[in-house]
């Protein structure tokens, strides 16, 4: 019995390894061809590169203006994620601790807004951004990122705050802490597990987002990585020895981020969706 199931597991293991190879194949095609010369890509796209032309990368880096794009993407992602996490934790905390009619209706609106497709508000939101005078600026993108991401984050924190015991806060209040200190010193550190989920979900979504930044940031010097890649790919269509290294540069940071933090990322996402 024992050996039979061990043998069966071995077969499953082999089959799963083959499936994993199929899953990885696109990355092989991307990286192997990104260092080939144009002629070699055309003659055989499946072979291992005969010579590694690393200049493909430096050329693509220059032409696509990736150093600016990296700076923009990093700035927008980091600032958005910090503010989303902070504001949603604050709101969720207060909404749980003071169960007023207003806060109940607010939570309902947050939940309802999650069903609204981005396309539904896409056109008028540009009008709002224009009216506030933050079009074609990073401020405009921060504003919209916050508005779009807060509902889910508040909802996730809301479920989590409920499980934080009230006694600790009461003790701190008796000791003379004011509500703001109680929140930042005591409650916020307790929210860490859910915070990881919210950081991961939003960092990936904002780093990868194309549509919203494409509508708000027209100035080429403000381009994020997806925007820079899109415009570069449009210019160098079918010129694979330029397009592929650009794509590889675009995905590399996020693949490294994932491999380093994969446990937190996978668990964070599982926790987020089970609660959601």
């Amino acid at each position: 019995m024992e050996t039979r199931s061990r043998g069966r597991n071995f077969v499953i293991e082999i089959i799963m390894a083959l499936v994993a190879l199929v899953f990885l194949a696109p990355f092989y095609f991307l990286f192997a061809n990104s260092v080939k010369s144009f002629g070699e890509i055309l003659s055989n796209a499946a072979s291992w590169p005969s010579k590694f032309n690393w200049d493909n990368y430096s050329k693509a880096w220059e032409l696509a203006r990736f150093s600016e794009a990296f700076r923009n993407s990093a700035l927008i992602t980091i600032v958005s994620v910090i503010l989303i996490t902070l504001f949603s934790a604050m709101a969720a905390y207060k909404m749980v601790r003071s169960n007023t009619k207003f806060n109940r209706i607010l939570l309902m609106l947050f939940v309802m807004s999650m069903v609204v497709p981005f396309q539904t508000i896409m056109i008028p939101v540009l009008k709002v951004v224009n009216t506030l005078g933050v079009n074609n600026s990073i401020w405009g993108l921060l504003l919209t990122n916050l508005g779009l991401s807060l509902p889910l984050a508040v909802f996730l924190f809301h479920g989590f705050v409920k499980s934080v015991p009230l006694e600790i806060e009461e003790a701190a209040t008796v000791d003379g802490c004011n509500p703001i200190t109680v929140f930042f010193r005591i409650v916020l550190p307790l929210l860490k597990p859910m915070m990881m989920t919210i950081i991961v979900l939003n960092a990936l979504a904002i780093w990868n987002d194309y549509l919203l930044p494409s509508l708000i940031l027209q100035n080429p010097s403000l381009r994020t990585i997806p925007l820079a890649t899109y415009s570069f790919f449009g210019q160098y269509t079918k010129q694979w020895d330029m397009a592929l290294p650009a794509l590889a540069i675009g995905i590399l940071p996020i693949v490294i981020f994932y491999l380093l933090l994969q446990r937190y990322i996978v668990e964070g996402i599982a926790a987020g969706s089970v609660k959601g």
Binding site: F87, S88, M90, A91, Y93, K94, M95, S98, T100, F102, N103, L106, L109, F110, S113, V116, T120, I121, P124, V125, K127, V128, L132, L143, T144, L146, G147, L148, L150, P151, V154, P179, I180, F183
Partner: peptide, 22 residues
């Protein structure tokens, strides 16, 4: 005051980006 401090920012951005555009 607390309600304004804690919930205010979320309500502000939510209103500007979701409610008004909708």
């Amino acid at each position: 005051g607390q309600q304004f401090f804690f919930v205010g920012p979320a309500v502000l951005f939510f209103t500007l980006v979701m409610i008004i555009p909708f």
